[in-house]
Amino acid sequence: MVKIGNIELGDFPLLLAPMEDVSDPPFRAVCKEKGADLMYTEFISSEGLIRNAEKSVQKLDIYDYERPIGIQIFGDKIDSMREAAAIAEEANPEIIDINYGCPVKKVACKGAGAGILLDLPKMQAMTDEIVKQVNKPVTVKTRLGWDDSTIKIQEVAKRLQDVGIQALSIHGRTRQQMYKGEANWEFIARVKEDPNIHIPIFGNGDIDSPQKAKEYKEKYGVDGIMIGRAAIGYPWIFNEIKHFMKTGELLPAPDLTERVAVAKSHLKFSVEWKGEKKGIFEMRRHYTNYFKGIVNFKPYRSRLVESDRYEDVLATLDEINEVFSAQTELSI
């Protein structure tokens, strides 16, 4: 049984990665329904929380059906991060998570996210202050290093464990790689195999199928897997991985009717939570994967990403179900 503090997550938990403009409550709702064991919010600016900025505060919204859930914060100032952690704790998540992995220039080049990998003493000091500030378990998500010459992930794990974090998720790329190339899980395995490391270690990067999840579990020995991009528009991946690991058999892919139903549910919550304009806009990134593999789908995708009225998007989704369900050439 993998545990973070007193939170039991099962024998091999599957985590939904915190993804900016993706891992919001509407998306988390469908991922939870389809088997995610632990989810994190989008990363939240510590400075935004302290200033009570609307966008940052809205990201604190969590719902009981999502539990257990972690709120993730980022920033480059220790005092601000400590204060933000206290604010996040008031939203009553199960976990406070620290982002030491974001590679985006406007974050990392200011010393936050993956930028702090260039200053391990500061990383340790910041983490120490946050652990002391809150009563919730603190976890961290990070990368291997800033670049190939600064990979010190075993030292990072030991420093963070020493100040009290209770789990570590490692994306198997450096900041320099961004999301390119292959994730290197050998470094993640070294952390897991280190006899001085006793907290759960979760691997992240490139898991996009049940077969790969099982292979990486067995090959690298991690305590669980964090899934990010592969879940966008395809939340079924969590249950598919669980079923394959348990039985060695692949679940049949969801049929078109189910894909449309989940897309509509996701869209409805998105519009309710963000308002019509933003809710429709931020759903657009999901449609390609929701309907991946449908022959001659391009005109319908164009309508989905160009429509700005909720009723029009719903009508297009209904039409997709009607038109393509009847086609023998459907190959999803």
Results as ranks from 00 to 15, higher is better:
T247W: 11
T174L: 05
K192L: 11
P254K: 01
P210R: 12
I237C: 03
K292G: 07
M226A: 11
E249R: 12
I170F: 01
I225L: 15
F291K: 07
R190W: 03
F269S: 01
A263W: 11
I207M: 06
G233Y: 05
K158S: 11
N289M: 02
V271N: 10
I197H: 14
I199C: 13
S265I: 11
K217L: 09
D208S: 15
P252K: 06
K214R: 14
L267K: 13
E182T: 03
E258M: 13
S209K: 03
Q176K: 06
P235T: 14
T247I: 10
D162K: 14
E240M: 12
K274I: 09
W273H: 15
M226I: 11
P235D: 07
F244L: 10
E249V: 10
G233Q: 08
A263H: 12
K278T: 15
Y234D: 04
Y234A: 05
H286Y: 09
D223Q: 14
Q177E: 09
D206R: 01
L251P: 02
V262G: 05
H198N: 15
M283R: 04
R173I: 06
Y220C: 08
H198Q: 15
R284N: 07
F187L: 14
I241M: 04
F281D: 10
I201S: 13
E282V: 02
K277D: 12
I197C: 12
K217P: 04
L160W: 11
N289P: 04
I170Y: 01
I280E: 04
G279R: 10
F238R: 07
V156K: 06
A167I: 10
I232E: 09
P252W: 07
K212L: 13
A263N: 14
S209F: 00
I197Y: 15
F244R: 13
R259N: 05
T247P: 11
K278G: 06
K212W: 03
D255M: 06
G205S: 01
D208P: 07
R173N: 02
V295M: 08
G205M: 02
V156L: 11
T257R: 14
S169N: 04
D162L: 07
L256K: 00
V271E: 02
L267Y: 05
Y234C: 06
G233H: 09
V262I: 15
Y220M: 06
G233S: 11
V295D: 04
A183Y: 00
K274N: 14
E249S: 15
E258C: 05
K246T: 10
M226F: 10
G279I: 08
N196E: 15
G221Q: 06
I241A: 00
L168N: 05
I227M: 03
K277F: 14
I199D: 14
R173S: 03
K212Q: 08
D255W: 03
L160F: 09
S209W: 01
K292N: 13
I294M: 02
E276Y: 01
H171W: 05
T288A: 06
V163W: 14
N239Q: 14
Q211C: 12
Q211Y: 08
N184R: 15
I165P: 03
E193A: 15
V222F: 07
D223T: 13
N204R: 01
I170W: 00
V191M: 06
K180H: 09
M245L: 15
K268G: 02
Q176R: 02
T288L: 02
N184E: 13
A213H: 00
E272W: 14
M283E: 06
K219N: 04
Q177A: 02
D223V: 11
F238H: 03
E258V: 10
V260M: 07
V262Y: 01
Y290Q: 04
A183P: 00
